[in-house]
Nucleic acid binder design. Structure first.
Length: 785
DNA sequence: TTAGGGTTAG
């Protein structure tokens, strides 16, 4: 083997010799013959440039720096080389430092400098720095340079400011194919598929330029965004017409597009015709199978690709993970194990995908563990962890992570906001809700439709329907979700008629209702007892809108039938349903049986529920309370024993009242507050004031519990204590809002109706199902909940 | 010496 071409520090086999590895900074002397003979200061400019370039091209930035630092009065070209070297070696902060040093040294940055500076700003996510750079370009008269403008389009697009990218593009005196491709891709990056495709078309019409592989690949991504296989097919034809079909990157983009548009068959056919495949191609196909609910095929690819002598990589694992949501946690764990064995971990994207998988499979502990041990976390990882907590009902924990994220100089994005908003809604805390609303208004997502929809829902869930409506009314771009949300908001508050008026408004504005709209409408009808309107809409959804009722719609109809009191009709309806009844359906029958005081039917419904959910706490509690009402104490004891056997514990009833930014929590018989004594005294006075007799409020049905369970007296129930505390702590005439974690009992519901009349106050109680608005002795629920 | 996106997480 000839050795003449080997560097001096390599042995004959081409390996680096151990001696050279021990030699400090050997590369300094191997870069240029000039350096062996002359000290750097004596080198002429051309030699320095040549040597510096050789260091930079081989990624040896330390050597480049040493040479640069010893060069007297480096010119713009040398400064540019250093900035380029750092930017291309991904030392972006150092590139920026050099740019600033260059300015401090009085050197003028030129058209070659700025593309690297802009690239560094993008990589560092330095939006403010990027803006300063753009400002500087105007001062130095480089704001129209082709290369710089192309870089700026990329910068604004990547910072999510596609309108600013457009402005740069529109004002360019000359555009080339990179300008057009950058704009086409900029729209894709910002989720604007159609605008990207329009731009793609305009390029040929306006400029006469021919699309290259880059433009085609971006346009295919735009088709995926819009799920438009037809547009994708047109681009496929263009690819064939212009001889791009043998390009593996274009082929992979086509395959990916077909998968994302749900056309797996086309993707498979394309895959079969490909004369070369690599791991990226396989990954696209695996991701396509996982995405299109074909987990078996996704997993089968792992074996097939190995037969093709192609091994999986970290992206293969990422693409396989969604298939685990169908095939179960054991497959997810297997992928995690394989990733460890193949040394794919640590890997930022893969770890984040694993967090998501564990959370969706209900293994929150594993998700938490993975998140905690990650050495590097992106905003996406934080968002995944927030979503993991919210999905698993750990709302306070989600809030903790969100606040932690905000304290780490990470700027929440649309995903962060839309992930955390449901946690605020579920916590139903108006003070927290107002805080997040104020935060969102100050952020750049203050007018985003997705975020505003979450805010409408949050206010409605927190009991503040007025603000919910104000946010809705002020929205500039209302979508179908905005309408569905405000309709169900009015439904939750028992304003069925207003909900139906809104539904009419929506239709009159030409917005086509969808499945969720009818869930909102039917929920509103059922919670307000609008039986005729409920049936009318249930029939209309099928006949006028061709929407097949789903289990949620049937659930609302069972609620409505329950209200009419015809339990037999309700059972017939359930049995005639084309879908398998869920525990929620039988729960509606149970509620109806309770309201009709039909123990036999309640037992029937409970039996069905326990067959599906043996640990349904609400069912045990409701059944037990019915037995107690009927004086069937042995059955009460039997239910208690059953609960014990199943390990089911009765949820501790809690009622929350927010006062002056503080949340006051009450449990039954609560004596833990500073003002507990006066609260109990006022409760007694009110009890007498509304005409409650000993039988109404002091009598406990179960003689076994008399004496020891003074706290179970209705007038000592958490909700009564919260209401009384609200009455004595707030301005006369102002409404009182209390939230309860379990359903309000009959006694309290009756008493609060009377208290609202006696105290001339509006009292709003939100329980797990509905907001009861008590005014002048009446409740909006019509005494059915 | 200057601009660029085949598959990948929320």
């Amino acid at each position: 083997m000839a050795t003449a071409f080997l560097p001096s520090f390599c042995n004959n086999s081409g390996n680096i010799s151990p001696q050279r590895l021990l030699d400090p900074q050997p590369h300094l002397l191997s870069a240029s013959n000039d350096l062996k003979t002359k000290p750097p200061s004596k080198l002429n400019k051309a030699s320095v440039a040549r040597t510096l370039l050789s260091y930079i091209d081989s990624g040896r930035m330390e050597g480049a720096l040493s040479l640069f630092e010893t060069t007297k009065k480096p010119d713009t070209f040398l400064w540019n080389l250093m900035i380029r070297g750092y930017a291309n070696s991904e030392f972006y902060q150092k590139a920026m430092d050099f740019y600033h040093r260059m300015q401090a040294a009085g050197m003028r940055a030129d058209n070659f400098t700025f593309p690297f500076v802009i690239k560094s700003c993008i990589a560092l996510s330095s939006f403010d720095e990027g803006l300063k750079v753009h400002g500087r370009l105007f001062k130095v008269g480089l704001d129209s340079d082709l290369f710089i403008c192309n870089s700026l389009i990329g910068m604004y697009s990547k910072f999510g400011l596609v309108e600013d990218a457009e402005r740069v593009f529109d004002e360019m005196p000359i555009r080339d194919i990179v300008s057009w491709n950058s704009m086409i891709d900029g729209y894709v990056l910002n989720g604007e598929g159609w605008r990207s495709l329009i731009c793609f078309r305009e390029m040929q019409e306006a400029s006469g330029l021919q699309h290259d592989r880059y433009g085609v690949m971006s346009a295919l991504a735009a088709c995926s965004l819009e799920m438009s296989a037809n547009q994708g097919k047109e681009i496929h034809c263009h690819v064939i017409r212009h001889g791009l079909e043998s390009d593996i990157k274009v082929q992979t983009s086509l395959l990916d597009m077909y998968c994302k548009c749900g056309k797996v068959f086309y993707a498979e056919r394309l895959f079969q015709t490909m004369n070369q495949r690599n791991v990226v191609t396989w990954n696209a196909l695996i991701g396509g199978y996982a995405l299109n609910n074909q987990p078996h095929k996704a997993f089968a690819c792992i074996v097939e690709m190995q037969a093709d002598s192609i091994g999986p990589d970290a992206v293969t694992m990422v693409n396989l993970l969604p298939a685990c949501q169908v095939r179960g946690i054991s497959h997810g764990k297997a992928i995690h194990g394989l990733s460890i064995r193949k040394s794919f971990l640590p890997h930022l994207v893969l770890e984040t995908a694993l967090i998501d998988m564990y959370a969706k499979c209900g293994e929150l502990g594993s998700a938490e563990w993975l998140f905690d041990q990650m050495t590097e976390k992106s905003l996406v990882s934080w968002n995944a962890m927030i979503a993991a907590y919210v999905q698993n009902g750990r709302n306070m924990k989600a809030l903790e992570v969100f606040l932690n994220l905000c304290n780490r100089n990470l700027e929440p994005d649309l995903f962060t906001i839309s992930s955390i908003m449901p946690a605020y809604a579920e916590l139903a805390s108006l003070q927290y809700g107002k805080q997040i609303h104020s935060y969102v208004l100050k952020s750049k997502y203050g007018s985003n439709t997705l975020v505003l929809n979450c805010i409408i829902y949050m206010y409605a869930r927190c009991g503040d329907l007025k603000t919910s409506r104000e946010v809705f009314d002020r929205m500039v771009c209302k979508d179908i979700v905005s309408w569905n949300t405000i309709i169900i908001g009015y439904g939750y508050h028992g304003h069925g008629k207003i909900a139906l008026d809104l539904f009419s408004d929506m239709k009159s504005k030409g917005i086509q209702p969808n499945e969720s709209t009818f869930v909102s409408v039917l929920t509103a009808c059922s919670l307000s007892g609008l039986v005729d309107e409920g049936w009318l809409n249930f029939n209309a959804m099928q006949q006028e809108y061709n929407i097949s009722p789903q289990i949620e719609h049937y659930g609302c109809m069972v609620d409505l039938l329950g209200r009419t009191g015809d339990l037999k009709e309700a059972v017939d309806f359930i049995e005639r349903m084309p879908l398998v009844p869920t525990a929620r359906i039988w729960g509606s029958l149970l509620t109806a049986s309770r309201n009709k005081n039909d123990i036999e039917m309640a037992e029937f419904a409970a039996e069905k529920i326990f067959a599906l959910e043996h640990d349904n706490t609400g069912c045990y509690v409701l059944l037990s309370s019915m037995y107690a009402d009927a004086g069937r104490w042995s059955d009460v004891e039997r239910v208690k024993s059953l609960m014990k056997e199943e390990g089911v514990q009765k949820t501790t009833a809690r009622s929350l009242l927010e006062l002056d930014g503080k949340t006051c929590t009450f449990i039954n018989g609560d004596m833990s507050h500073d003002q507990s004594n006066i609260t109990h005294e006022v409760s007694d006075i009110l009890s007498k004031g509304i005409g409650e007799t000993a039988n109404d409020s002091d009598f406990v049905f179960n003689p076994v519990e008399v004496g020891a369970k003074k706290a179970s007296l209705p007038k000592r129930h958490s909700v009564r204590l919260a209401v009384v505390f609200g009455l004595i702590s707030t301005t006369v005439g102002s409404p009182i809002l209390v939230k309860k974690n379990v359903r309000i009992c009959n006694d309290c519901h009756h008493a609060i109706k009377l208290i609202s009349r006696y105290s001339k106050r509006e009292i709003i109680i939100g329980d797990t199902r509905i907001y009861h608005h008590f005014t002048d002795g009446f409740c909006c629920c019509g005494d059915y909940w």
